[in-house]
């Protein structure tokens, strides 16, 4: 849910990275964190288990710059991907302005992608949103691995509307900023519509 403060001339938007366990949601955020100037971002808060699996969420505020005199700040969140953390996922979708679905391109993760995407649609609905209407990007991650599904097949299975589909290798940063830009652009365009 966008928050526009006319006194401090700031706009805050919330972007959520969604996807199955170990698909690279936190890696996306980590890459953005590592490659952004410290003055443009806050801390990367990671509520993870001892084995580095996201327990509740990761969070990072990112200031992109000024548009028409207003500071534009994006709050980036990831959800825990593991199936049994569904309650946490629902909570994090509250007030979302844009969603990135991070798909794992490996053949053996296809079912997990489909299940997670279905879960996203359901959880968005329970918060009063419709995937077909909100700013949304499909990221196909781990394109550097050997056992991956071709892009066309992944898109055929996972694409829900005319969303941008971006190939990525989050660990090296390939496609990470393209993904963020694609979703941010849609969020800001929504604001233009009012």
């Amino acid at each position: 849910m966008t928050f526009i403060n006319y006194a401090s001339r700031e706009i805050n938007c919330k972007i959520v990275y969604y996807g199955p366990g170990l698909c690279g949601k936190t890696t996306n955020l980590q890459y953005i964190f590592d490659s952004t100037a410290p003055q443009a971002r806050g801390k990367l808060i990671s509520l993870a288990t001892e084995t580095d699996r996201t327990l509740f969420f990761d969070f990072m505020p990112l200031e992109l710059g000024t548009v028409r005199g207003f500071k534009t700040r994006f709050h980036l969140y990831t959800v825990p991907g593991q199936v049994f953390y569904d309650a946490s996922r629902k909570l994090i979708l509250k007030g979302v302005d844009g969603v990135v679905f991070v798909a794992d391109s490996q053949e053996e993760r296809m079912d997990a992608n489909i299940e997670s995407l279905y879960n996203l649609e359901e959880n968005l609905q329970s918060q009063g949103y419709d995937l077909m209407k909100i700013p949304y990007v499909l990221q196909l991650n781990k394109r550097d691995l050997n056992n991956i599904v071709p892009v066309e097949d992944l898109a055929a299975e996972l694409k829900r509307k005319d969303e941008p589909v971006i190939e990525a290798v989050a660990a090296t940063g390939a496609g990470v900023f393209d993904t963020l830009k694609a979703v941010a652009k849609q969020v800001l365009t929504e604001l233009r519509k009012g």
Partner: peptide
């Protein structure tokens, strides 16, 4: 009565953020 700061935002404005 509040003028939206984004009413006249252009694609160039958005690109410049990145």
């Amino acid at each position: 009565d509040l003028e939206s700061p984004f009413a006249e935002i252009t694609d160039e404005d958005i690109d410049s953020l990145f």
